[in-house]
Computed example of a mutant assay.
Amino acid sequence: MASTQRVTFQDGLTWTVVGDDGRVIEPVEAYLDFARQSDYSPNTVRSYARSLALWSTHLARRGRSWDAVRLTDFGSFLQALRAGEVGSATVALRPVQAISDATVAARLRPVMSFYRFHAAMGVPAASFLYDQVNGRPGRYLPFLEHVARRQPRRRSQVRVRVRPREVTVLEPVSVEALLAAEAQFDSDSGEWSGDLRYRLLWTLLAETGMRIGEALSLQHRDWATGRGDTASVHIVPRHHPHGVRVKSGARRVFVGSRLDRLYGDYVWWLCDRGGDAVIENWDGAYIFCNTIREPLFAPLRPESIYAHLDRMKRLVPELPSAMTPHWFRHTHATALLLAGTPLHVVSRRLGHRDVQTTTNTYGHVTDDAELAALANWRQVVQGWEPRAND
């Protein structure tokens, strides 16, 4: 069986794929190295390595070399993925656990990209995967289509049909219950009790739609406190000691005055715990840091956040068991769209490179809102009825 292998080096970590003999599978490593040079995130490289390890295991069981595959190998791979048979020590006769088509498609995508890469490098492997299609698909063509000079398109011969995935959101009562469980303000003493660090983190995610990696990458220099104007947070791509990355490049996100005040209280909260004596360079210090475990005031790990959220799920019954920090992002985008915020504005706030990404992910939100507006049919058609004076 092929397996993924974690590789640690001075600037971070990555993953590769090794065979039964413990040696790196060279064709796979060549593709993964291309992905690293293309600035793919370590998590993406890890996911691609996992998929290619499954593919290599599948080919080994069929006695097939990677550059001598047939179309039937891909069909059997899809079937084995759905049955959960790839990567197990024994091949089950019947599926043990059904795997969604979205997961199957995610596993297949790196394999297809792997063969596209080697085809571009001149390796004649799996040339049957794509065929050239001239013209536009569909029955109707635009005016003067016959004189347009269009390049042929490549169409994949292996595809997985995936239903659009519905995003999961949090109810306001769930968000409020989590914030209250993290920290509360005592108006009599004028102090916060609890872990203000996590209250600030969840509030930031809920009110900005940031990804968890973007929030963990923030340094104090990135928070521009409002001084007669609107406060903002600058998301800046930078090297993080725990491999956290900013996915969508640099952007500025405006925040409200309440969140800005909460950040100010948090800075004083850090000072009360000795941060002012330990942190020499506040501008370059990470906002979300260790306050209990050593090393104190070092950048917080993503694993710590997920472990903390698992504990909070057991303490706060209002939280869904499947909740992840990414649910705050979905909740923020859904709330903006239901409030009538233009789609392109939501797209820029979320940091999507293409507004089509926002449409594909949250298009059902606006569709449902428009359909819900038609629920009162009589009110809608009232304007159609002829007036008595007409």
Rank of each mutant, 00 (worst) to 15 (best):
P152A: 00
S257Y: 02
W202F: 09
A148E: 04
G12T: 07
L13R: 12
S38H: 09
G363M: 10
R107H: 15
R199L: 11
T90E: 05
A30K: 13
G122S: 11
A83S: 08
P124W: 01
F288R: 03
Y266I: 05
L200Q: 02
A120N: 11
R293N: 12
V169R: 02
L93H: 02
T8P: 03
N376Y: 08
A231E: 01
T72P: 00
D188G: 02
V345G: 02
E280S: 13
R353G: 03
G351L: 03
L179S: 09
E385M: 06
S38E: 15
L309R: 07
A2R: 05
E280I: 14
H352S: 00
A177W: 00
D283P: 13
R159D: 14
T14Y: 02
L343A: 06
E318I: 00
L141T: 06
R273D: 01
A92V: 15
A373L: 10
Q356V: 15
D73T: 14
T358S: 04
F117R: 07
F328Y: 05
W377V: 14
H239E: 15
A30W: 04
V267H: 07
E85H: 08
Y40S: 08
S38D: 07
P95M: 06
N43E: 04
V167T: 14
G275P: 06
L81M: 15
G351Q: 09
F254A: 13
D11Y: 08
D188V: 14
H220P: 03
R238W: 06
A119V: 00
P295N: 05
W327M: 07
H146K: 11
Y286N: 00
A285I: 03
L108S: 04
R163F: 13
V91F: 04
G228C: 09
P386N: 07
W268N: 08
E171L: 10
A307L: 06
A35V: 10
T334N: 08
A373K: 06
R314N: 02
A2E: 08
F77G: 01
D368P: 03
G213R: 01
F128V: 11
R153S: 07
Q157T: 10
R6Q: 11
R6D: 14
G275M: 12
R251T: 13
E182D: 13
G228K: 13
C289Q: 10
R165N: 15
G122F: 12
L300G: 00
G84R: 11
L108M: 12
Q356P: 10
F185H: 11
T341K: 10
A335P: 00
I292T: 14
P142Q: 07
A80H: 13
L178T: 03
A224M: 10
E385Q: 09
A2C: 13
G194E: 04
Y286G: 01
P137E: 08
R154M: 14
S47Y: 04
G264F: 01
G122N: 11
Y306V: 14
T208C: 07
V123K: 08
G19Q: 14
L218C: 13
F288L: 06
A125P: 00
D67W: 12
A125K: 00
G75M: 00
R109Y: 05
W377E: 08
I292D: 05
I279W: 01
Q151C: 03
L81W: 04
P317E: 01
L218M: 15
Q356A: 12
R109M: 09
L129I: 10
V346E: 01
P137K: 09
